[in-house]
Amino acid sequence: MSIEEQIKIIQFGQGICPEAELLEQLDQLDESEKGKQVFDLYVFVSRLKPADADIGQAIADADIGPDYSPCISPKSGTRKVWRKMFSEHPEKDYMFLLRLFKIDYQRRYALNKDNATNWQYRDLSNRETVEAILKQYENLVEEVYQNPSFRSEFVCIAKLWHERSMQPPTQIRQDHYTYLTYDELLTESIKLLGNLQIHPISMLCHSIEQALSIKYGLDHGLANRLTLEVIDRHMRETYNSSIYK
């Protein structure tokens, strides 16, 4: 999720951006892009660790039917988080996640709206505030990109990512399943573990995210997004490609 998309979601949480606008944007995407959009929101919301009691309320607020199976749900007294693979109803998933986010965010906003150190609780109805946030983020990307302490790691990840992207795509068997079966999930996981680039990329990204979190006081989500932005810049400038393609 880009910084612009996150601002839009938080504006929705503050009651500034109407839900209809976000749903209309989702509706304009193809099925693959819809799935990515829903999953990005799923990751964003799940990191907030919303209360289990909010889940039923979000389903009721979204008016998506009593038979809807949420992609974030409580189980056995603890939160059970899982990803719906190839969902047949991405609009319902997206609407549910929006409502769940809004319930959780408004609770946090009431407690933190005077906290000027966290941009997520600033008044995002102010255009100058939004522009300042975007500029600050742009400057942070530039600073990290130019920082020699991280450069060798980013160059290495970009090289590994490029080499991986040059490999022939894996042919995925198509059948009637809406979700991956357990055996299919296990098989695909083993393939990923055997990939020569996946493990070092994951290890290096995790290391950099930890370092950025400590150095700049970032939460996990922002450190992850910042890492991907800088990797993508190296990819574009060195290989004329992108991690988002």
Rank of each mutant, 00 (worst) to 15 (best):
S2A: 01
S2I: 06
E4H: 10
Q6F: 01
K8T: 14
I10A: 02
I10P: 07
Q11Y: 07
F12D: 04
G13W: 09
G13F: 07
Q14K: 07
Q14F: 06
P18H: 12
E21G: 03
E24W: 04
Q25G: 12
Q25K: 15
D27V: 00
Q28C: 08
L29S: 03
L29R: 11
S32K: 10
Q37K: 15
Q37A: 15
F39R: 12
F44D: 01
F44H: 08
V45R: 01
S46D: 05
L48D: 09
K49Y: 09
K49D: 10
A51E: 14
A53M: 07
A58I: 09
D61Q: 14
D61F: 08
D63M: 12
D63W: 09
D63H: 12
D67K: 15
I72P: 12
I72A: 10
P74D: 09
G77N: 03
G77L: 14
K80V: 00
M85W: 08
M85A: 05
F86A: 08
F86I: 01
E91M: 04
Y94S: 05
M95V: 04
M95S: 13
F96L: 03
L97R: 07
L98A: 12
R99D: 00
R99Q: 14
I103S: 06
I103V: 12
D104C: 14
Y105R: 01
Y109R: 02
A110K: 13
L111Q: 13
L111S: 09
N112A: 07
N112T: 00
N112F: 14
T117D: 14
N118D: 15
Q120I: 01
D123S: 11
R127D: 08
T129A: 11
V130T: 11
E131I: 05
Q136E: 14
E138L: 01
N139H: 08
E142H: 10
Y145I: 09
Q146E: 13
N147C: 08
P148V: 07
F150R: 03
F150H: 13
F154G: 03
K159L: 08
K159T: 13
L160H: 08
H162Q: 12
S165Y: 04
M166D: 04
Q167I: 04
P169H: 13
T170E: 12
H176C: 08
Y177W: 10
T181V: 04
E184V: 02
L185P: 00
S189D: 02
L193D: 10
L193W: 05
Q197S: 10
H206F: 07
Q210Y: 04
I214G: 00
I214D: 12
I214Y: 09
I214E: 13
K215H: 12
L218F: 02
G221S: 08
G221W: 04
L222G: 00
R225N: 06
E229T: 01
D232I: 03
E237M: 11
T238C: 08
S241C: 07
S241A: 10
S242I: 01
I243Y: 02
Y244A: 02
